[in-house]
Amino acid sequence: MRKTMILAMVLFFLGAVETGSAEAEEDPEQDIYAERMALYKNMESVTHIPWYWLAGADAYERGIRRAGNDREEAEGVISIYYSPKEWSGPLNPEFDAENPVAVSMFNGAGLDGNGNGTASLSEDADVLYTFAHYLSGYGYDDNNIRKGLWDYYKRDQAVRSITNHARIYRKYGTLDLDEHAFPVPLRYNYSYNNTWGDSRGWGGRRIHEGTDIFADYRTPVRATSYGVVELTGWNKYGGWRLGIRDLTNTYHYFGHLTSYEEGLEKGDIVAPGETIGYVGSSGYGPPGTEGKFPPHLHYGMYRDNGYSEWSFDPYPSLKSWEKQAKKEA
């Protein structure tokens, strides 16, 4: 039975790759989306793990690879990572072993996902099937999948990010979600300079982890990407602030708001350009403190490398999104 399912999966996958290759010259990026989706859907049919969970985990690991320097670039379109030692077995003298029987004998993780008789780290189908098969050992519903993810990553943020990525993919039904938006509508008066890294004195010596976009009170603040609202509430530095995690694991921080968009709550999925709040001057004190500085949006971006997060300069991204918005206006 399993051989029949694997054969069907291989035929389907080969057909998807052949179709995608014909379109590659027209739009290589769309071809990558099609190839990934074909892999996700094939593995869903074999392991019963919903495709959007596989897409969510793959997106999380793709972000980890971009943020860190301890993993080489993925060879194919799937970014889920196994070290050669994990794949072939910790005691296997041949870390490049691809014989499924030998890998199994040494308790390696690697499995043959496309029925060609090898378990290869360089084959997307093998890597994705190995990961999906692991999760299937916990069950196929959301709660059990999250348990499997926790045992795999041993990190709350990983499970939270993958869960939210999966929710986004499930809602929109596509992988093509790379659009961005400038956080303030162009028709409003605003100004900004590169202030990331500048010194700040209130509350102790620290650096400015963002870019200040000065605008009038109640100027709409917009989501800059597809993501999930991960945090809301008061912070003595940022006042009424809001945090959104996108599909690259980047955390977008919006500070000094005067209020949130009505009905917006933690856990909501947002799209680029969607209003999430309004410019204010809240912060630098206990809840309710306002007016200690001119109204502006503090916009920050933070990368996650799988272990910790750190601030990076959002100014280049802001200039790029603003330029694109002006081009489309």
Rank of each mutant, 00 (worst) to 15 (best):
L91W: 11
M5V: 15
M1K: 15
Y278H: 13
S308A: 12
E265D: 10
F95M: 10
V77S: 08
T248M: 12
V127D: 06
G117S: 02
G115D: 05
T219A: 08
Y190K: 06
F13D: 13
G263S: 07
D268T: 10
L231D: 14
D126F: 09
I162V: 11
G267I: 03
F214W: 00
W240C: 09
A8P: 06
E98C: 06
A158W: 02
G283K: 05
P93W: 06
I207D: 05
V270M: 04
Y52M: 06
G201I: 13
V270F: 01
K266W: 05
R170F: 11
R71T: 13
N193V: 10
G15E: 14
R65E: 12
L231Q: 14
P295V: 00
Y315S: 10
P84H: 08
Y81G: 06
S308T: 14
I207G: 07
G233A: 06
A223P: 08
W202A: 00
R222D: 03
H298M: 01
P50D: 09
E309P: 00
M43K: 13
A132E: 01
R155V: 02
H252W: 12
V279Y: 01
T118H: 11
G117D: 04
D198F: 11
W150M: 15
E274N: 09
G255R: 00
P314Q: 11
N144R: 13
Y226E: 11
L11W: 13
T275V: 15
S45Q: 14
D124V: 03
K171I: 02
G210S: 07
E230W: 07
R62E: 15
E179K: 15
Y82S: 04
N99E: 10
M9P: 00
V270Y: 05
L14I: 11
T248A: 14
I162C: 02
Q324S: 10
E262P: 00
A16E: 13
W51T: 08
N107S: 13
E29K: 15
R167G: 04
D27T: 03
S199L: 12
P93K: 08
E29I: 14
L231T: 15
I80W: 06
T232F: 06
K327Q: 12
E26I: 13
A166R: 04
V184H: 01
I207C: 00
M1G: 15
A24K: 10
G203H: 05
E75I: 12
R187F: 07
R218Y: 13
P295F: 01
T211S: 00
G204A: 07
E123C: 09
L242H: 00
E25F: 13
G243P: 00
A57D: 04
P220Q: 14
A271D: 03
L175R: 14
T258C: 09
P294N: 05
L91C: 09
A132Q: 04
S199P: 08
M1C: 14
G273F: 09
S45D: 14
L121E: 04
Y82P: 10
P50W: 05
L149A: 02
N143D: 15
R303H: 05
F182D: 04
S191F: 10
Y237F: 10
